[in-house]
Amino acid sequence: MPDFIDGSENVSVHGIFNWILLLAIFSVIVVIGNFIGYQHPISDSLVGMAILSLITLAGVWMERYLPFNISSIIYISVMGIVLAFPGMPTSEILLYYVSKVELLSIVTVFLAYVGIGMGKSWDEFKALGWRAIIITILVIASTYLGSAFVAHVILVMTGVPA
């Protein structure tokens, strides 16, 4: 089992090919949803999704190839932030196309996969009692409300207008 996950062997053209195809499928679904939900032109949003997919691909690739112990989430975030930096030569064209893809269109498709994926945990979920469900709900609510209240207090204290 462990050799399954050991990085070196897995990083193959085959793997990258899989990532590209998956991202392409994802992009097409997002773009069509984006067109139905927000009427953004298909060609522009397709370019937007291609840009986001490229950033993702680069991040996922870097996580596995570069000799640093850094997660792809960090690589992707840093690339996205830097490329969109005001004043960067890339920022204007990037913002034009990426803004044509609504975040919610991505989220809607993403959560469809999440919904199907979480079905797998259903039997284990049913085996856990109502007490654990209550605690989970309270934990999620407190983590969200806790940070909302702290953020609100700091924003008000530092005088940020709403």
Binding site: L23, G59, S77, A84, S91, L94, L103, F110
Partner: peptide, 15 residues
């Protein structure tokens, strides 16, 4: 993998 696309979109807004 798709988390990456979501993160990239958010990062562009952050940048």
């Amino acid at each position: 993998l798709f988390i990456g696309v979501l993160i990239a979109k958010l990062a562009v807004s952050s940048g």
